[in-house]
Design a protein around this nucleic acid. Structure first.
Lengths: 145, 145
DNA sequence: GTATCTGCAAACCCTTTGCAATAAG
DNA sequence: CTTATTGCAAAGGGTTTGCAGATAC
């Protein structure tokens, strides 16, 4: 299986764009994070490792990574967007506790069925879906009594 | 069935907050819009009707309406949040064309099943879900050839 | 009467952008 | 060599907030 770097190199070549050291270290950093991230925390964790890139370069890279299907917007909270890398992982959805902010990942085959039915019914070509389920985890339910 | 205004009046009373004419006309405006809205377009459409309220009052009202379960965040796009009123309507999900931005609404009983299974599996009390399906509508598929 | 609410304008903060220097291909 | 990319700092733009006057209760 190709690495995310290979995928991205091909993606850039196809678009007549350049593969730079800055782009490489940002992608490496993103794929080393096994969690959702936002631009600022990514920037800070890179600075700590002496991997200096400007925020502007991160912001400029993100739309490309999304277009290349390497990362995805996960959710928008308190004024900023959170992302996660998706290449090499099975697609999943998020179950979030509205109280303690715990996030669990899950997948369900019925979503593919729903996609197929929507495609048929509305003549859409489905590209992707995003399902967020919000609730209270066991612990937060107990505390509310 | 209680009106959205009654619901909100009770909600405010319970919180020791006040029911003002500004809050009333904003809610009336929101519930007269049968579509998704953002703060700026709401503000503009109110100005046109000589219903003058400040944007600040709209921004300050929105979290209250969400807490009162009268409106919901629908999606975040191009730097701003879109909302819709949900009181008095059946819950639905959104199918969006990523190219022309058309939005279709749908509902699917399988989502309730998924919710039930998640509740059992993770011991969550499910409150709500948000499913966005992104794709290309027929017209935009044709134009891409 | 008193605490909340309003409008205004300024502040905030995440994100985007113009520009001159740099570097990929 | 040519054109894309970088870092910097400034600008953009949706949202929040401090404040003084107005108002719900």
């Amino acid at each position: 299986m190709k690495s995310e770097l290979d995928i991205f190199r091909e993606f850039l070549k196809k678009k007549g764009m350049r593969y730079t050291p800055e782009r490489e270290i940002i992608i490496k950093e993103i794929f080393s994070i096994h969690d959702h991230f936002d631009v600022d925390s990514l920037y800070i964790s890179m600075r700590k490792k002496e991997a200096r890139v400007s925020k502007a370069s991160i912001y400029r890279l993100i739309p490309l990574l999304i277009e290349a299907n390497l990362i995805e917007e996960v959710f928008f909270d308190r004024g900023q967007m959170y992302y996660e890398h998706i290449y090499g992982h099975e697609h999943h959805c998020h179950l979030r506790c509205v109280n303690c902010k715990q996030i669990l990942e899950f997948n369900d085959p019925r979503l593919k069925e729903i996609e197929r039915d929507l495609a048929d019914k509305f003549n859409y070509k489905i590209l992707r879906h995003k399902l967020e389920v919000m609730g209270l985890c066991q612990k937060c339910q107990d505390e509310q009594e």
